[in-house]
Design a protein around this nucleic acid. Sequence first.
DNA 1: GCCGAGGGTGAGCGGGCGCTTAGCGAGCCC
DNA 2: GGGCTCGCTAAGCGCCCGCTCACCCTCGGC
Lengths: 214, 214
Amino acid sequence: MSTVEETAGGEAQPWDEVTPDAARRLLLAAVEAFAERGYHATTTRDIASRAGMSPAALYIHYKTKEELLHRISRIGHEKALEILRTASRTGGGPTERLAEAVSSFVRWHAGGRTTARVVQYELDSLGPDARAEILGLRRKVDAEVRGIIEEGARSGEFDVIDVHATTLAVLSLCIDVARWFNVDGPRTPEEVGALYADLVLRMVGARGPGAAQR
Amino acid sequence: MSTVEETAGGEAQPWDEVTPDAARRLLLAAVEAFAERGYHATTTRDIASRAGMSPAALYIHYKTKEELLHRISRIGHEKALEILRTASRTGGGPTERLAEAVSSFVRWHAGGRTTARVVQYELDSLGPDARAEILGLRRKVDAEVRGIIEEGARSGEFDVIDVHATTLAVLSLCIDVARWFNVDGPRTPEEVGALYADLVLRMVGARGPGAAQR
DNA sequence: GCCGAGGGTGAGCGGGCGCTTAGCGAGCCC
DNA sequence: GGGCTCGCTAAGCGCCCGCTCACCCTCGGC
């Protein structure tokens, strides 16, 4: 039922911006390895061999192992931000936009679980500078969701006690999908996205059109 | 406002069951180190020196570095399960019990963030056998929450579309607190617990007493 | 006072890590 | 077609890892 290609590592992420081809293959191998075992448990030899190259080939395209994680993290966060911004720009009121944001964000975390895992959980393995840069992107992600919730609260379409805490909770819900989602499990990314969108609308007390009414 | 002791590593967890004293100090040092840098990035030398001992001292009390993680993980999961069971056994209907379960579970994840981080996020660093044992405990945690939600759904006190998915989402919300909670941040564990209990009651569409009515 | 047991140390082992370097071969320019 | 560039490899360096071993100190029992 899922429409995105889900070859191991391929998933929903295109990685088109990474060139040349060898650099992309290495990056893809790194994503897989980091997601499976974590950054620190992954060796450069493992990454290289997954990409069908010798250990030394990695250092032609990347200065260090950390640069790989940094690149993956930045591209991933930019993709996440783009998803939320697209959803936020769709027509309709806060209810529709929040539902669209959550369901597409969840779809990305579920369908591209391999990438999302690295992006969301390996942040602390970055050095201070890279980490600070990525944290800037995360604040933008946060602001995007908070913006929608704030607007709904102001217009009275939502009923929210604490906008900041609710924003955090909504993001928690979406991000944690990358921790537990199993591609071979009973639910498709689309189903989880729809379910979670409904749960989030309940959390913000949405009364407007699109809220779960019964 | 917080009543639990929050000395670094001490937190809400007693670790009384770990004896002798040197073994407990090592375990505590390991919890701190694993939470800060992750299991694979932590060295046995770091653990030992945090505990004020030589690197070799570790191997008097533990066979391997993994045994430390295994012990931490089991004790932590047992504590988590105990918290949920206690909450589940309090008087009142599903609404009160779910609220109590969520708020106390969140308080544990926030107040004992150091421990909770290791318990919830370092599971994959365990070997197959230890991992399987811990996964058994996790299923019990899951069952505890699902039990309350199921009961509320059956009695009509809750309005839930998908019990399994909702259970997962509730646990997600609680567990993810260990990822973002900051002891120096603006909110106490108690505040987050209360906020999240309210959000969860909304998610399950609680209509009974204790639900956020307005 | 001697002994054994148990908690602890200093030194160091084998090995695998991230990363480097010297060199090789295919393709392109002139 | 000679030479330069670029992508890549084989070999290996230096380091630090998890873990071990020989030995030591302290303390209770007799």
